[in-house]
Amino acid sequence: MDLCLVIKQRLQDLGLEQRDLAVAANVTESYISQLLTRKKMPPASDRTDIYDKMAKFLKLPAGKLAEMAGLQRKEELKRNLGEPPAPLLKEVRELILRKCAPDKEKQVRAIFEKQPFGELERLVTQKLLDVVKRVAKEELGSENWLQLVARLVGRSYEQMRVIVLEFLDTDVFSVSVEDCDSFLDPLIESWDMDLSTFAMEVVLNRRLAPGYPKKFEFVEKEADRPSEEPAFKRFLRDRFLSGDAIEEEIEFLKRLRFNGKRPTPLYYYRELQNLRDPLHFRNASGSSMRNSSGGPK
């Protein structure tokens, strides 16, 4: 079922207007209008209470609107994936550079200009977005916080709720000037990065986001080694089974994986014998390893 059609039909059945729904959902009438005309993508259901408020007002089963919104979002995202990403707007880049630590700003600017919308610019922008979106999501249910931010950016409470919903759907490819004016600029005091390790620190406006600076590090490390099978350990302890297995053979047996099945120590013994049996392997010429008389070596 179509989200927009269902909402329109319920409004008609109940003799209500879009402005009534906007009041019930604590958003602007303009936002409701754009949702119902598909000019705005429905917000993700896990980031907002708008569907609960609308469903209650329209006397619909709980979760129905959220489910339909999720399906519509998937279709929209599929279509958008085929479109090439646009570079950051000039105003967005300038804000990010202005918030950069003074001793790094010149160096970072040079990298941004040499590699427009390159890896570093995308990394920094995405991380700043992630930090601010986390704050916005946590505070979405706080009327006091929304009122405070609304006053700072010259918006009404209802407008601010709409802006937050749209901002939570923003990514590095779609960040707008309005996102900067409403969130990135007022919430971020500064950011710094160690360009050799890409460790990043973000300092937030304590009035809007109390707490310690957020630190992020990008450290290369080896993947965790999978744990050994219990039967493999018993196989190694049993000298009758493991015998004179050499290091290369043990390493080979250790790497075997079974997709949920549990082998026995005897399995490893047989696998070891198979590994040593020349009939199971071919030499470089592709023929089986046999001696001159035709029998196995």
Results as ranks from 00 to 15, higher is better:
C4P: 08
L5I: 10
V6F: 06
I7D: 05
Q9E: 14
R10S: 08
Q12M: 08
G15P: 12
G15W: 11
L16V: 09
Q18Y: 04
L21R: 12
A25N: 05
Y31H: 13
I32D: 02
T37G: 05
K39D: 07
P43D: 11
R47W: 08
I50L: 13
Y51R: 02
Y51A: 01
G63S: 05
A69M: 08
A69G: 05
L71E: 15
R73L: 06
L77Y: 15
R79E: 12
P87G: 06
E91F: 05
V92L: 03
E94G: 09
L95G: 07
L97C: 03
R98I: 11
K104G: 12
E105Q: 15
K106Q: 15
F112Y: 02
Q115E: 13
G118M: 01
G118C: 01
E119I: 04
D130H: 07
V131Y: 06
K133D: 09
K137Q: 13
Q147G: 00
V149I: 14
V149Q: 04
A150N: 04
L152D: 07
R155F: 03
Y157E: 09
M160P: 01
I163M: 09
I163A: 08
F167I: 04
D169N: 14
D171L: 09
F173T: 10
E178I: 10
C180L: 01
L184K: 03
L184Y: 04
E189D: 12
M193Y: 02
S196R: 15
T197K: 09
V203G: 06
R206S: 13
L208M: 02
A209F: 00
P210N: 06
P210I: 01
P213R: 04
K214Q: 11
K214F: 12
E217W: 10
E217P: 07
V219M: 14
A223L: 10
D224I: 09
E229W: 07
R234A: 13
R237E: 08
R237L: 10
D238I: 10
L241R: 05
G243Y: 10
E248M: 08
E249V: 06
R262T: 14
T264F: 00
L266A: 07
R270A: 08
E271S: 07
A284S: 14
S285G: 10
S287H: 13
S288K: 12
M289S: 08
G294N: 03
K297F: 14
K297W: 14
